[in-house]
Write a protein that binds this DNA or RNA. Sequence first.
RNA 1: GUGGGCGUAGCUCAGUCGGUAGAGCUCCGGAUUGUGAUUCCGGCGGUCGUGGGUUCAAACCCCAUCGUCCACCCCA
Length: 421
Amino acid sequence: MVNIQALRGMQDLLPEQKEIFRFIEAKARQVFECYGYQEMGMPVLEATHLFKRAVGDGTDLIEKEMYTFDDRNGDSITLRPEGTAGCIRVAEQHGLLFNQIQRLWYHGPMFRYERPQKGRYRQFEQIGVECFGMPGADIDAEILLLCARLWRELGIDKDITLELNSLGSAEARVKYRTVLVEYLTSVKDQLDEDSQRRITSNPLRVFDSKVPQTQQLLRHAPLLKDYLDDESKQHFQQLCEQLDKCDIAYQLNPYIVRGLDYYNRTVFEWVTSSLGAQGTVCAGGRYDGLVAQIGGKGTPGVGFALGLDRIALMLQAKFEHANAADIYVVSNGEGARQQALWVAENVRNALPQRKIVVHCGAGKFKAQLKRADASEAKLALILGETEVTNGTIGVKFLRDDREQISVNVADLNDILNRFFS
RNA sequence: GUGGGCGUAGCUCAGUCGGUAGAGCUCCGGAUUGUGAUUCCGGCGGUCGUGGGUUCAAACCCCAUCGUCCACCCCA
């Protein structure tokens, strides 16, 4: 046992859980398609420097969370820790961004070497959406509308709230950053240890500190919104108006700072209180400078990623009987056993949407019916020696108060069709 | 990377002061020779996470290690 465990932080998805993931993916696909977004795929492995260049060298993600190792030829490669960089690489490499507009989405595993926790795994499933070539606030609003619709489809809209902020232009942010660093440095010895460290690593993050004394000091800190450039202010205002118009509730949170360096202007998080400390279920924002930073021609972009694992945790309680069968076929005796598979095939031809399970292998008749009951099937089809010789099949209603009936093989599909319609 | 909780049957867990391991559920068989509730009876099932130490004796105490959970950090 000891040697065959999953690697630390890697989740095994049992059928019950996988069902939830499939549900989320299906809903996402349906919603994204109805907004005209196109699915794409990309490799799990990329050159290490792609992520370094895109995400920012000083970030925790780059410094200590990447699965990086040497390829056999000595090149440094990395299991993708996020999707945006790779998506841009694909789009650039195949010319999707040259004077074009794109609405793209993808899904798949991401990898970060972190300490596992509820809702946080080393391999985690993410759905990403990226839009290119649209500088206006309308596309920012669109992806938020798209998110909101997805939450409604998933039935979790009541449990999630939207938090919004604007980081301004890159220039405004740099200007603000220096002012903030100045202020923080002036009170440095009164700050907690983490916050002191963050002055150099990511000063905006200091606002996230939970230490009361630090929070006290932050009250007098300069605020980002006072440093926003006019265009960014206008952009943000348009976004808010658009959301108001479409009845999307949101909360302004001046302290949202995405962990990755590439964001500008709009940033947002969809959060829930139902998952403990890992409450962010979906997050994203605008990254107008990123494409150029990776090496392409400057193209505006907005996007977000949602954490499938976390949403799956939220949905868990609602998935009790997702794998129920419709029909369970039991048989008694050698001849009947052979007949059973054949009968089931014919039924599947006639009712391809139905889940039909045939009892295979050994098993007493009584035990087979117990299995039928446990499968949550509505009907049991019964094949015994009597049925085989008479050319009939027993149809037993497992969930209704009805007598078992005996039908001719030739009439079976009609009867089943009527029952399930 | 830091701090804390927890690892006992397939699952959920009990196990007193250290005295050599138990229940419920599941599964299998029977009561009922071909009919799924319930009930009753019987059965399968254990390296007590792993390795070391203390002891006449360790699931229990000590050390290490792995895993897991929670929080920090960080983030989806």
